[in-house]
Design a protein around this nucleic acid. Structure first.
Lengths: 348, 348
DNA sequence: CTGTTAGCGCATTCAG
DNA sequence: CTGAATGCGCTAACAG
């Protein structure tokens, strides 16, 4: 009878898709599951002989602990979430990749998610990320308002880091480029090369989120030139968007002899449009971008750009999450700004 | 005494980071947790008045069901994993983005992960993905051997889809470009433009994974020209890698008048190197790539390339996972190849 | 050093 | 239509 029961048990355990559990390992070795659990946790108080046999069984059964079950009881999943409106953006991909490297070293995993604008303006996606059990979240908050972010951070009970935009919100660590310094450097450079008619190509701005980059650039231009606001066009941050915006800008302001684009992708689109309009770069008109993506090096001429240290910023974000996870909550509203570097190439 | 206990309970529940559970909702409404559970599952047999009150309480408490707890009992997490050696690759990012859109529509989530080559050649990363509870996995298997993939698929008990390389492995659905057709189209095009000295710039190949693209190209060249194998160089699939490989190729084979690159990024690197060497494109030498990334349209001249329908392929991959999750296991070793499209621009 | 008991948050039986 | 009991796989707190 006992044999029969065991047989049934074995059959049901050989079922499709069923992976071995801690109990299977315990039974094979002839110990309790607690002992197996201790071996997994590298707990010191286990007899080395027992430890050896358990590890053997783990290998033999190809056992992997179920991280969800573990997370349910430890209340920590060793997983961070990272969210952006567009995961195809190279600046974001670079940051992801950098965080991934660090995460692996610390035994963490990353859940990458694209923000769904339709779902309560992205907050819905973040909530789902939470329900997935992540221990902290990095947000590229291009489109989330400070109010939304504050409400979310307040209710989520986990460390939240925003990147790419300075957010002075209690409980949120903000990691961003020093936009003031970047704008100053760029405008100084353009003025030094004799270009004084500067136009801007900006990211399509959601009215509730005026972009800091835009404000910093306008401010730098006003102080540098002693003039009113520079002309600008907004469109989606793609090559096509850059083409459209540049065409519109040059049509409405034919005297513009320098263009600062929201990022390198937009700048590259602008270069195409300008070439089609017969403008020589940089003789007739200069073009600069932000981010320093690799593709900017292959345009003709190569693109001058503001480089940010993606890896270092990714590392800072990861550390902020780790600290927050360790101490319960992050330092209130800490803002880290990073120094930009101007990479002068052929378009200026 | 009862009051005191309740107070303690309330205090502990107001603890940091503690999110409301199904029990909190049940208590607020004055029903059992099963009733709340039924409302969540849109179970029909709940009184509409009860349902209304429960939904109210859910909104009031800002309750979100814990997906890990749910997964533990349902044995399904509504989560798919997607893994690649390089998440910065635009072809991969595009696929991710496409799958993300579909996943959201179906209530699924995506866990994106970068394969760790040091960790048992990437298999270790995949195992961790499994322990995270994903219901299926998409792998960009550039560097995994068929043997490793077969062993993994066999033991994992969940649907596995590979993309980008034809893998004829039982239990794995393989989605890839029709490399034979692509190679034929490309070589025909080059021959039609009078280029007969073709060189190849390939991805740095791991010896255990001879790449199908390489073989298909060599085969097409041999049949088209009636000649021996074309010269080739291998390097990492980046702009810098493309520059290096192209420089080496042109040095060792100065008569080459057409270059087929592993992908657009490599092709763009090659263009830079060729320009530095004083070769005119396409007059002296033609260049073509694969993938049809947006940046290929910005080079001077714009890059001729083999375009794959990323969105359609992403959709196919997602459907394969869904079917596999529904029926228990995927069709044995199904291989889906997709027709390439030649986008002729300025470099040929 | 090891086993026992309890419970994480939820869904799935079964009773009413 | 609703409630009570049971367990998913694992770890924490206590016993021994």
């Amino acid at each position: 009878m006992t044999e029969e029961n065991e047989l049934i048990e074995i059959v049901s355990k050989t079922n499709i898709a069923r992976r071995p559990t801690i109990i299977d390992v315990a039974e094979l070795v002839g110990v309790s599951r607690q002992t197996v659990s201790r071996v997994l946790a590298e707990h010191p108080r286990v007899a080395s002989e027992t430890r050896r046999r358990v590890k053997e069984a783990i290998v033999e059964l190809d056992f992997r602990p179920n991280r969800m079950a573990r997370a349910l009881v430890t209340q920590t999943s060793m997983t961070f979430g990272i969210a952006s409106v567009d995961i195809r953006n190279l600046h974001f991909a670079e940051t992801c990749s950098g965080m991934q490297t660090l995460a692996r070293q610390q035994g963490y995993h990353l859940v990458v998610t694209e923000l769904d604008l339709d779902d309560a303006g992205g907050i819905g996606t973040l909530e789902t990320l939470l329900s997935l059990g992540v221990d902290g979240i990095v947000i590229f908050p291009n489109i989330l308002t400070d109010a939304d972010l504050a409400a979310f951070a307040d209710s989520c009970g986990r460390p939240v880091v925003t990147m790419g935009r300075v957010t002075r919100i209690p409980g949120i660590v903000s990691i961003a480029l020093d936009e003031t310094a970047a704008a100053g450097t760029l405008v100084d450079h353009l003025l030094a090369t004799g270009k004084r008619r500067i136009g801007l190509l900006m990211n399509q701005m959601f009215p509730q989120v005026p972009h800091e980059r835009y404000r910093a650039l306008q401010h730098a231009i006003e102080t540098g030139l002693g003039e009113d606001a520079a002309p600008f066009e907004s469109d989606e941050p793609t090559i096509e968007g850059g083409k459209r915006a540049a065409a519109r800008l040059v049509r409405s302001h034919p005297d513009v002899n320098a263009i600062i684009a929201f990022n390198d992708t937009v700048a590259m689109g602008a270069m195409v449009a300008l070439r089609e309009l017969g403008r020589r770069i940089p003789a007739d008109i200069s073009v600069v971008g932000y981010d320093g993506i690799p593709y900017g090096a292959v345009t003709e001429p190569p693109l001058t750009t503001i480089v940010q240290d993606n890896r270092a910023m990714a590392e800072a974000a990861f550390r902020a999450l780790l600290d927050g996870a360790a101490y319960g909550s992050p330092p209130s509203g800490e803002v880290q700004t990073w120094k930009p570097e101007l990479l002068i190439r052929g378009t200026t």
